[in-house]
Amino acid sequence: MSGLMAVFWKELVDHLSGWRFIILFLFIYAAGLSAWWIANQYIRSEVTETSKFIFLRLFAVSGGEIGSFLFFMSILLPIVGIVLGFDAINSERTSGNLSRLLSQPVYRDSVINGKFLAGLVTLSLLVMSIVAIVAGLGLRSIGVPPTSEEVLRLLSFVLLSIIYGAFWMSLATLFSVFFNRIATSALASLGLWFFLFVFFLFGIVRVSPIFLYREAVTMLLLPRTMAGVSVVPVDLVFPLPFGQSLLLIWPQIVSLIALAAVCFAVSYIKFMREEIRPT
């Protein structure tokens, strides 16, 4: 653990003090608040029959395909992850800090772990705070408190969103280990995101992280709306209990975690085995 906390705190403070974070913050909050506003317009018309999870609809209702909270998250969380990770390692290298850093009495993995951890905490702060704010505003605007199951589902949604963001962050970290130039790794990660997003829009790449996230989160927030969830029988009428919902989206959750883990593991191994060479 030597040095992990030092790296973690320094990186966290870096994230929170940078313009980058302010911009991400504004992005996420603008999206979250507009999603709340949109949901407010449509939620009453969507709650028709004996709807069970009214509160959760705040995060899923938009009157259409786009504009809901979960839609914005599926688009913006990749950007947050990429911005937090795309220059993690190569910026240290190009600025001449890496060899100085590694000559300190810290394990080498403390550097990459501490950086990843700080990114994860920043990401979690963003996700948790915007979900809490939308929940608070929603509670005030619709006046229907969440049931305990809804709270559980909402927490799972937050956790899943963090995992989803973490995947993109580890992907960007991977590029930052492999590409020495910061611009290259930024372009590579954004390019991949754009590629997956465009293909997601056209419904071509079903096994893309964007799709996995959408499927899982839709199941969590709108257990009755089966549209777009390929593995679920369409004729499910009653909302599944939480445990069953979780079981149903277990493959998606595991895939997301696995993707994130693989990206991080590859960057970890590459970083650990890399030799510091005289320039």
Binding site: S17, S95, G96, N97, R100, S103, P278, T279
Partner: peptide, 11 residues
């Protein structure tokens, strides 16, 4: 260790 072309965090 003071590396050649040492760098510090500019911010």
């Amino acid at each position: 260790y003071l590396p050649e072309k040492v760098g510090f965090y500019e911010d």
